[in-house]
Design a protein around this nucleic acid. Sequence first.
DNA 1: GGATCAATCTTGTCGCTGTCAAGATAAATT
DNA 2: AATTTATCTTGACAGCGACAAGATTGATCC
Lengths: 201, 201
Amino acid sequence: MPKSKDNYHHGDLRAALIKAGEAVLAETGVTGFSLRAVAKRVGVSHSAPAHHFGDAKGLLDALATEGFRRFLAAMEARQAAEPDKDARQQLLASGLGYLDFAISSPALFRLMFSTDKPEPKTLELAAAAEASFMHLVDGVARLRGTSPFEAPAAMNDVMAIWSMVHGFADLYIAGRLGPLDCKPPEDRDALLKEILERAMV
Amino acid sequence: MPKSKDNYHHGDLRAALIKAGEAVLAETGVTGFSLRAVAKRVGVSHSAPAHHFGDAKGLLDALATEGFRRFLAAMEARQAAEPDKDARQQLLASGLGYLDFAISSPALFRLMFSTDKPEPKTLELAAAAEASFMHLVDGVARLRGTSPFEAPAAMNDVMAIWSMVHGFADLYIAGRLGPLDCKPPEDRDALLKEILERAMV
DNA sequence: GGATCAATCTTGTCGCTGTCAAGATAAATT
DNA sequence: AATTTATCTTGACAGCGACAAGATTGATCC
């Protein structure tokens, strides 16, 4: 009975694989990512993941999808923690959440923005990514009082702000922003805010 | 004789492997990158690359090194093509070169900024990356009239400008800047210029 | 000029990997 | 209770990185 229960019908194998997959991704990066290592960590056979995710890309897509959800949650969390509900301050807070997520899950962050947009394949992934994008669009809409989809200038603001926070986050997790390494997180956040304000004109 | 000459002592196998490696990297990305595929493309045995590069990371490091050199060359090329030698216009031109390179070699660009800065291991790679960084620092120094290493405000400018152009390039090659897809390259360059000027205060 | 040596490339092997096919087990359905 | 379906295991295959051992070539030395 226990053996059967342990081996077969794990109960929530899909969720367990995603959790373990995230751990493996964080430890080895996407290049060292191994489907068999994920299966071994959960304690199932090497071929168990196939039934839930198809191939390796299927699991990575699921990880990216979950990543975008937590990504959005990180931005909203920083917004909620910001007492000033002004559109500008809220947008800056989103940027800090953007950076929070990139720092806490750099490998997942890189996976999410790895160049495979052309064919999202899974609708869930496309939807989760789109939701993150819309969060930024909404923030700019509140700041400008116009929808970026109708006002080209506002869409330029979206791309400027996104480029700024994304570039900062990507360079930071690449260890390229050396001057910041020996400084406390408050300085890092302050610098991102100062820099982000430039993108808002 | 011909067989011997062909198989042994290729003459410039190292350069040939780098060239083929770049092609494989461009086609398959870093995840699908295979040392054996590179060897097969050149027409040597599967273990030939080991003598020149040690392991797979050795070849990737060499590719990244070569990438940083061409990266710097791309920025300088755009600067040379810019008739206005004003510090600001020259810095903007560098940004266009930055984007040129990312678009022409997205996989290589990603490899160069993949998070392995902590231990460059190969001095050549560290030197090539540093040279690119210094190019940006020099550009800002000319713009501000002060060395960013002495003036913290100027170093903030460096990080702001770098974040902006890097984020724009990274999002662009990820296919995330949808609104630009159906527009001509001139519009893309114009937008990057407009956005980069924000980073210069 | 011939022998020795070092550099270069090949072949063979090992364990690990993704993917597929076939089989076993448990839950759901009828 | 029997059958179907979903879930997981086992086994196999080719491709991979890495290592060891051997083969070939060019260079060095006397």
